[in-house]
Nucleic acid binder design. Structure first.
Length: 962
RNA sequence: GCGAGGGUGGCUGAGCUUGGCCAAAGGCGGCGGGCUUAAGACCCGCUCCCGUAGGGGUCCCUGGGUUCGAAUCCCAGCCCUCGCACCA
């Protein structure tokens, strides 16, 4: 029977579906609960996703073979704006979106209209599309319990999330506050990264506003380097731009027109009193709030009125930009007279350094500009020089003594403190803005606005302490991720957990808001335990009391000791029944997720479990997964640089796809899907299949197992090692090591076995069948279609009905392995000699070391690798003493030999009858070298034409060819 | 700058935790052979240098060190990747 995955695989898919094979219900067996992030169907499924879900599947299948009752569920995450945004972009006919849908995911024109509602879009990629997740998951043979699927937009799920957030609020872990957000001035609405047309990567900056003043009028100047306040020599405004005088809160401010609008959105009361062009304030002098010095406002074209306040302070000693601008202003000082500026006053402006830094002159900006040979503000190198100087000053610059308590400190250490100091003194204000233009997809300018927002208080000390404890007992795979969780818990601050629109659950007490995706997915694993059993319960009955009963039990509800709920209440009968499901499955044994989610989602997952559930229900393990590359480059649905599981499975078969994904890298390493390598994997599987067929068809007598020879025992001994190593590797989630061991590494052993053994013997046939029977079970988690098919052909039942193999001590034999290693090394030696001499021998003579040499070996083995000690003992023997140097050389050799080997091997070597080993392999040697082979005892009266026999040492026979 | 992970033979990629059986697995590529009418597929062997006897030399980013012995441990340096921070 040929290997036809397209014929085999659909049969198994159908069987599994019909049997409900992977539907798991509570039972007597040990429960294993494996979860993976539910997919976000804002597009189709590609191969990167395929591995995400196949890794947990392999583990699930492994645990099932181990006898566990395994639950592997899946749901669908649709919360928030990405899907809504995708629909909007589609409806607008945006080309990038159409490309992604049609080219990357093969959506036909006729289906596009189905995608015009958010849930229609989601539903399409959940199950309808060719590239839908459900189709992909089924094709891959994932052992999912499909009864439990849901979406995060379902009413019942929302009731669950409502319970979660009401509980958290009662526990004081939610807080309302103002928060800077990206805000579209066109739609007058907050926007997310997905809503941006331009500037997706731009983060807003927190600018210090230095409150320069003229009389009662404030001229706030924005800077990201508040420590330079003492180095300001002048200011710049754009003469062409529009500025306003506005009442800001109770003060009079002069800023650009754009800045006035932004300030109005940042919790300031702003009334524009008067509008004028920048020209008007050129020449004005203003007072530095820190130094009290008067500085003059100069004109400059480069000032962008849409950046921060539109009034720029100049620090020529530390900003190459400012330094060059000031030089240019001096050169053209005479042109400033019409503004009422005295040219001499401009020419007399000198940079004022406020910090010292090694590697630069006294005026760092000057030396930086001069060293780079920059002469004009048009020089493209200026930006680079500026960046470099800023970096150096931040990390290495020491502030001058005029800063009092901050003097002598490195900027990086005191910038924040210094800013707060001047803020509290009233010298500084604060403003948020983007350093680059940001444009929304609606075409409007995006600015930073303050919005009322609800926060999760991840900075709560008690909560952090609980989360830290959850990490302590967590199995982190790989182990070096543990530190990252701890680190994240340490620095995590408040997290805004709502959005203004999108799919999902409304904030229970304010339905203007929706709970955002990273916040509505922290404990949903518990929902899987009952998801398939609550469809018949009316939505409104899934209330607070229901979930309290479900998760905390009747006692907690009756006694009113559910945190935040004071009155005693009746438990809900149905919830008590369901509680058994939850108690059976929980906690999550392992969460398998992506490494970039450690900093947010996975840590949130720990926080929420630590708060809402007892310690016994905290997650037990998290395994991290790496990313996928395609032919060496990052996969990207928007660029169409993806392979769809359906395409790959059609070309190679699901087993090949799975095997490649699991075997080419450990789960936490990045993998690279390369067509040539995948093709090779398919060929290997096919070869395995063909060999298996020979074994399945072989006619094996009943009593064949009684005719095992040494080489059969050797293979079986190796098989036991393979079982142990594969099991250990899978216990550590090392899918690559496990599959390499069970598949490729054992193939190497088989290669030797085939060369060595007479395969027509019943004993050999029996051995190969035994090997196949074991290997199919070891491989079943990886290639379930093939393994089940072959196992059924071999034994009459699928591999998944059988048990995971365990090493059989009866077949473990170091002695057998050591004996074979002697044959192997001798074979290699003979080959070497033949290769080097270039001869084709007719006779090969093998001389085994004589008994006295083996006696010396025994002495070395007993004494240990110490030449002096061994010689002392050996020389007590008169006969050996007579041999003199020969003994000395031998001891040197043997000490080396013993030092390099472990005790078990040495013990086995002590039991070996070397001559018998080579004699029994004579037939093999003769076939291998096509020559007559004779084995001699080097100590006997023997034929030794070249006088080689003396060279024999234990386990290294002398060899002569002729 | 901080944190994490790396630098291995033509390429890819194991080994490094637990130093010695490591000239260093496997795959790809290349070379030779078998099978075949032929190609492909498949099977076998070779693939750092020198060598007509199983040996020797050089080698795992660079330079030191520890050790009887280092790809593996320690120190210093260089370079790369990824996060974060910082930065008009």
């Amino acid at each position: 029977m040929d290997y036809e995955p397209q014929e085999i695989e659909p049969r198994w898919r159908q069987r599994w579906a019909e049997e409900g094979r992977y539907e798991a219900d509570p039972g007597d067996e040990e429960a294993t609960f494996i979860t993976v992030p539910y997919p976000y169907p804002s597009g189709g499924m590609h191969l990167g996703h395929a591995r995400t879900y196949t890794v947990p599947d392999v583990y699930a299948r492994y645990r099932r073979l181990q006898g566990d009752n395994v639950l592997f569920p899946i749901g669908w995450h649709v919360t928030g704006t990405p899907i809504v945004g995708a629909v909007e972009r589609l409806k607008k006919g945006e080309q990038a979106q159409l490309d992604s849908l049609q080219n990357a995911f093969g959506v036909p024109e006729s289906d596009l209209k189905d995608l015009e509602t958010p849930m229609g879009f989601a539903r399409y990629f959940i199950e309808e599309a060719d590239a839908s997740y459900k189709r992909g998951m089924n094709s891959l043979g994932l052992s999912i319990d499909w009864r439990r699927e849901f979406t995060t937009n379902d009413d019942r799920y929302s009731q669950f999330i409502t319970w979660q957030y009401e509980s958290l609020k009662d526990r004081g872990l939610l807080e309302k506050g103002l928060h800077p957000v990206k805000y579209c001035t066109e739609q007058e609405n907050p926007v997310t990264t997905h809503d941006l047309l331009e500037g997706e990567d731009v983060e807003y900056q927190e600018y210090s506003l230095i409150r320069f003043s003229n009389e009662d009028v404030i001229f706030p100047m924005a800077t990201l380097r508040p420590e330079t306040v003492r180095g300001v020599t002048n200011a710049f405004v754009n003469t062409e731009a529009t500025y306003v005088e506005a009442t800001v809160d109770d003060e009079s401010w002069i800023v650009s027109e754009e800045a006035a609008e932004k300030l109005g959105l940042q919790d300031h009361e702003v009334t524009v009193e008067r509008t004028f062009t920048g020209e008007e304030i050129v020449g004005t002098t203003v007072e530095n709030p820190v130094t009290g010095e008067e500085i003059i406002i100069l004109p400059a074209e480069f000032v962008d009125p849409d950046s921060a306040t539109g009034v720029v302070m100049s620090v020529p000693a530390h900003s190459p930009d400012d330094y060059v601008a000031l030089q240019e202003a001096k050169d053209r000082a005479d042109e400033l007279e019409p503004y009422g500026i005295d040219p001499e006053a401009v020419r007399s402006i000198e940079p004022v350094p406020i910090l010292s830094i090694e590697g630069y002159g006294e005026i760092p900006a000057q030396s930086a500009v001069e060293d780079a040979g920059i002469e004009s503000s048009d020089d493209p190198e200026l930006a680079e020089v500026t960046k470099e100087l800023y970096n150096d000053e931040f990390h290495k610059g020491k502030l001058s003594e005029s800063y009092g308590e901050f003097g002598g400190e490195v900027i990086a250490d005191i910038r924040d403190e210094l800013r707060e100091h001047f803020q509290s003194e009233g010298a500084f204000g604060l403003m948020y803005d983007f350093p680059e233009p940001v444009i929304s997809r609606a075409g409007g300018k995006v600015v930073v606005a303050f919005q009322d927002t609800w926060f999760l208080r991840y900075n709560d000390e008690e909560w952090k302490a609980k989360a830290s404890r959850a990490v302590e007992n967590l199995e982190c795979i790989p182990d070096n991720t543990r530190e990252q969780y701890t680190h994240t818990i340490d620095w995590l601050e408040e997290w805004p957990c709502i959005r203004n629109y999108g799919l999902g659950t409304k904030l229970p007490w304010d339905d203007d808001f929706v709970i955002e995706p990273l916040s509505d997915s922290t404990i949903y694993m518990s929902y899987y335990t009952v998801a398939h059993l609550i469809d018949d319960i009316p939505v409104e009955e899934l209330d607070r009391r229901f979930f309290d009963t479900l998760f905390y039990g009747a006692d907690a509800v009756e006694n009113g000791d559910v945190p935040g709920v004071e009155e005693s209440r009746e438990p809900v009968e149905r919830a008590l029944e369901l509680r058994e499901e939850w108690e059976y499955w929980y906690p999550v044994d392992v969460r398998i997720s992506a490494n970039d989610l450690i900093q947010n989602h996975l840590t949130f997952f720990l926080f929420h479990h630590a708060e809402l559930f007892d310690e016994s229900n905290w997650p037990e393990g998290i395994t991290i997964m790496g990313m996928g590359l395609l032919e060496g480059e990052k996969m990207s649905s928007s660029k169409g640089h993806v392979v769809l599981p359906g395409e790959a499975i059609e070309e190679y078969g699901a087993d090949t796809v799975r095997f490649f994904l699991l075997n080419s890298a450990e789960p936490w390493q990045d993998f690279d899907w390369r067509g040539d390598l995948v093709g090779n994997t398919r060929d290997q599987l096919q070869r395995f299949w063909n060999r298996a067929q020979e074994t399945i068809e072989a006619d094996i007598p009943e009593d064949a197992s009684e005719e095992l020879e040494h080489i059969d025992e050797w293979l079986l001994s190796n098989l036991q090692t393979t079982i142990a190593e594969t099991t250990d590797a899978l216990d550590r989630y090392e899918s690559r090591t496990a599959s390499q061991t069970a598949f490729y590494q054992f193939e190497e052993q088989l290669k030797w076995y085939r060369r060595r053994a007479d395969l027509d013997r019943p004993g050999a046939k029996w051995t190969l069948r035994e090997v196949l029977r074991t290997r199919l079970r070891l491989l079943a988690p990886f290639v379930p279609f093939m393994a089940n098919e072959l196992y059924e052909q071999l034994t009459g039942e699928p591999a998944e009905e059988a048990a995971w193999p365990e090493p059989d001590p009866a077949f473990e034999s170091p002695l057998v392995e050591v004996r074979e290693s002697l044959v192997d090394s001798t074979t290699e030696d003979i080959h070497d000699i033949i290769d080097v001499t270039g001869t084709d021998p007719e006779t090969v003579r093998i001389y085994v070391a004589p008994a006295w040499k083996h006696d010396v070996f025994e002495t070395v083995r007993e004494t240990g690798p110490d030449v002096g000690a061994v010689m002392g003992k050996v020389m007590q023997d008169e006969q050996l003493r007579e041999k003199g140097d020969a003994v000395n050389d031998l001891v040197q050799d043997l000490v080396e030999y013993v030092r390099e080997r472990d005790d078990e091997t040495l013990a086995a070597l002590g039991d070996v009858d070397e001559q018998a080993v080579y004699e029994s392999a004579t037939g093999f040697f003769e076939r291998e070298f096509d020559a007559a082979v004779d084995v001699y005892d080097a100590g006997g009266d023997i034929e030794d034409p070249a006088g080689k026999a003396d060279q024999a040492v234990p386990f290294r026979p002398a060899i002569h060819i002729e």
